[in-house]
Amino acid sequence: MLDFLQMVVSGIAVGSSYALMGLAMVIIYKTSEVPNFAQGEMALISVFFAFMLLSHYGIPSYIAFPSTLAFAAILGFFLEFTVLRRAKNPNVLGMIVITIGLEMILLGLVSWKFGADHKDMPFPISPYESFAIGKMFVSTLEVLTLCVALVMMVTLFLFFRFSKLGMAVKATQQNRSAARLMGIRTNRIMMFTWGMSSVVGCVAGLLLTPVSMDPFMMWDPMLKGFASAVLGGMTSLPGAVFGAYMLGIIENLFGGYVSIEFKSVVAFVIIVLVLCVKPSGLFARHYVKKV
């Protein structure tokens, strides 16, 4: 029983980082209908920016982290403005390939600048400290990640529900031309969502760095984030978070009780099964095409 609880707790802990990546992907998907394969690498470059500030220039972390978030936002704006907006009559597959191309460029830049070696990120919280609940152990970093993920989800939810800008984003997503007719500058909205998603991804990346940091660190979290977003329904923010926690818990339980070798693929099998029943994920309303 104790093991079971520990596994569930571990699952929730790992689910939090999936959740943040999933949220980032959902934000972009909501407006552009593009699964953004460059999401992980956008976070990567921001994280390495933070690393550079902290360890090369010795800037204290209370300045370095906010400037990293600003950098992430600008990066998102920049990529949308210079690359994605320039695509002529884009189709979804074309956009996917563009994001894959961006992914390679960003990854290449980071590895070119910093080499392939592992880095030691000077992060204020040690990933190895933990506190015990009964006989279960939870690390401080995991608790932080969990809180950040939940706060992020609630903030985004409130933002989309109540703020004017959030409404504009939703309108853009539902019908671009109608939104434009209502006086919404849809181009700016797109740019804004890319920036926002980049910031969320960057937070996820920053919370992953204390454990291990190298140019390939974001690939797996990105995939898992994407998978959990799909599980929850690509357009639903709470769905992505819920999907992420489910994924984390299932992976840990499966690894603990069934087979550790297939731990990281079981998620996908379950997703296929879920999708067979609910083709648009658990939370999104299934969109029925009209002829």
């Binding site: 690359v83 320039r86 695509a87 002529k88 009559n89 884009p90 189709n91 074309g94 390939v97 563009i98 894959i100 191309g101 961006l102 992914e103 390679m104 460029i105 990854l107 290449g108 830049l109 590895s111 070119w112 600048k113 910093f114 080499g115 392939a116």
Partner: peptide, 25 residues
């Protein structure tokens, strides 16, 4: 960095993909 210079391959590869798709869907 000189140790990571080979990663230019990735950058070029990605760039070619992006450019082709940008100019001609």
């Amino acid at each position: 960095s000189l140790t990571g210079v080979s990663n230019i391959q990735f950058i070029l590869f990605g760039l070619i993909m992006v450019l082709i798709m940008l100019f001609e869907p």
